[in-house]
Design a protein around this nucleic acid. Structure first.
Lengths: 130, 130
DNA sequence: CGCATCTAGTTTCCATTGGATACCCGGTTT
DNA sequence: AAACCGGGTATCCAATGGAAACTAGATGCG
């Protein structure tokens, strides 16, 4: 079970895979990437589509995604300058990897809800195991 | 493109899938779940294996995972009480879904690193698009 | 003319979160 | 009795996240 560091061991804080995990294990990344993977999208369009996403965090997240080479930023010198974010091949491959996650969440949300309900009913007397 | 809410639309803040996404899109969840999926693991064993994980956050995360029905907590009345966390079937199915993510990170870490390097070199003069 | 409006952000402020550290409890070894 | 395990909780402080205000260039509208 010992991973070789050269192939990336995310359990070590200094491993590159760990840094990548920190990046992509983020709800906004998942949501934004999956939208942009569908079609190039403008800043405010993203903001309107993703409920609860603030401008600040959207801006930060897009900047990170661009830096990581997952999306591209393209500014058009239109009337009020419009900026379009598009997926890169690298980003598309990540989006494909992430998609099953959304499907899993969708498929199992009721199971989780009932697990939570059961847990909460047990209150704080869950295990008196020998 | 309009998702029906009944089937879960994570773009809406109040959708159950969104809450699930918030939970599982977390680096600690990914790391812990993948360890526990391998074999039942004790509290301090987890802490030692996952570099940078504090007791507080481990405890919190495990509690959430247990509440969500993804792991089980089993306390043995041994010498100093030992507590073992094990994966549930639900957790195992999530772990399987998450595994490709770790593989993706491992496979693409160099691409990302070079994208970052390129971005940083461009400095702050990336796009003068017409 | 001048204010409102559109775009894409940045800045400010405050609440929540996360990490480090210390402590607790029961039991055991020395 | 003191130090030491295992599995936490409590506390303190720094970093993060969200809400909302502000910037800035250009255009429409009255």
């Amino acid at each position: 079970m010992l991973h070789d560091h050269a192939e990336g061991n995310p359990y070590q804080a200094d491993c590159p895979t760990r840094r990548i995990l920190d990046r992509i294990a983020d709800k906004w990344t998942v949501l934004i990437l999956s939208i942009v993977a569908g079609q190039p999208t403008r800043f405010n369009a993203l903001r309107r589509q993703v409920d609860g996403l603030s401008q600040k965090v959207l801006s930060q997240t897009l900047k990170s995604l661009e830096r990581d080479g997952l999306v591209t930023r393209h500014a058009f010198a239109t009337v009020p300058v419009t900026v379009e974010y598009a997926i890169t091949p690298l980003g598309a491959s990540l989006a494909e990897t992430l998609a099953p996650l959304a499907r899993w969440a969708s498929a199992h949300m009721e199971e989780i809800a009932s697990a939570q309900a059961a847990f909460d009913q047990r209150g704080a007397a869950p295990d008196k195991a020998a």
